[in-house]
Design a protein around this nucleic acid. Structure first.
Lengths: 169, 169
DNA sequence: ATGTATGCAAACCATTTGCAATGAC
DNA sequence: GTCATTGCAAATGGTTTGCATACAT
């Protein structure tokens, strides 16, 4: 894979950002960037923290939060808030443009490839707003939960049911 | 306005939902629904709590959270997570389809009218996923923050600057 | 009468903050 | 040598939970 090339690119971009903003180039910051760009897909702070703890380089949670903010600011990382609790993050480059299918039943987030949802014509209308990135969140019920829900509703007709509400994580 | 007609409709829909799920039809629940459909735009729990406290009907925060979950489940209310902290909600009916412009600088959320972003052709691809609703979040920098940022960067060239990071709320 | 829903206060937990120690410049 | 950055632990604050009381059925 040419992932190492991508890593080099984002590293350079990060360096540029740090320089221009007069921030220090600490090993922690580069280690975090390296880790994030070593995996595709979403991650949250806890998993990142644990992943780095296992590896050679451990950083504190505080530093993780500090650094991710820098990475968000310079556009190398994207932040998502699918549920109420944990924030999820995702590297900005090296992933195709995709929507997020979020199941209201089980909370699972699936990616769904998508063409150019955001057309140039639409972009034009937003002249006074400088777009960094955009996310499409599609909420609904996944196949598995759909079946469970239907079974549940059927049961409802014969016996009373205590809790039909969607389970929260 | 025909808002009262809409209110009647959603009230009926809610009743149906409560019945079919064997939930009780308490005055609190209807008061909350009524309040939510009395205003357009986004709201958070705190503002809803305070608004209802001012009015004749006070409900506890716990009940607010319980009820909003029911309203989410039956699709009368939509939930957003623009920032890390507070969840925002929005009535599902009576608002045009719109995107959300979220400024990474000041956190302000603006609505932006939008045509049919989600075309039938795209919908077709998602057969195994029952869509409840979808939201487009466009992150970027609003006009005001853009100016501030540029001024800040200019200043950076002559003096050192301690904190160029985006201000959090 | 029964058991769900409410309200209160305490608990939870991701994130933020204060501060002393470290290390990039 | 300075002062931003790190790491730790404590604080914060929106949301959840446990439990006694109220009330829809």
């Amino acid at each position: 894979m040419d992932n190492s090339k991508l890593k080099e690119q984002v590293k350079n971009e990060f360096t540029e950002y740090l320089n221009s903003h007069k921030h220090r180039k600490t090993p922690e910051r580069y280690a975090i960037l390296e880790h994030i760009y070593s995996a595709k897909g979403h991650f949250d702070m806890d998993s990142l923290y644990n992943a780095m703890k296992e590896s050679a380089f451990r950083v504190s949670r505080a530093t993780l939060y500090n650094t991710i903010e820098l990475l968000l600011d310079c556009g190398l990382v994207v932040k998502h808030q699918f549920g109420a609790n944990v924030s999820q993050y995702e590297r900005a480059y090296g992933n195709e443009n995709h929507d997020h299918l979020i199941c209201l039943g089980c909370g699972e987030v699936k990616e769904h490839k998508n063409g150019n949802l955001f057309t140039p014509a639409q972009q034009k209308k937003l002249q006074r707003f400088k777009i960094s990135y955009y996310s499409m969140y599609i909420y609904g019920t996944c196949n598995k939960c759909m079946r469970a829900k239907k079974a549940d509703e059927k049961k409802n007709k014969v016996t009373e049911n205590k809790n039909t509400r969607i389970k929260k994580k």
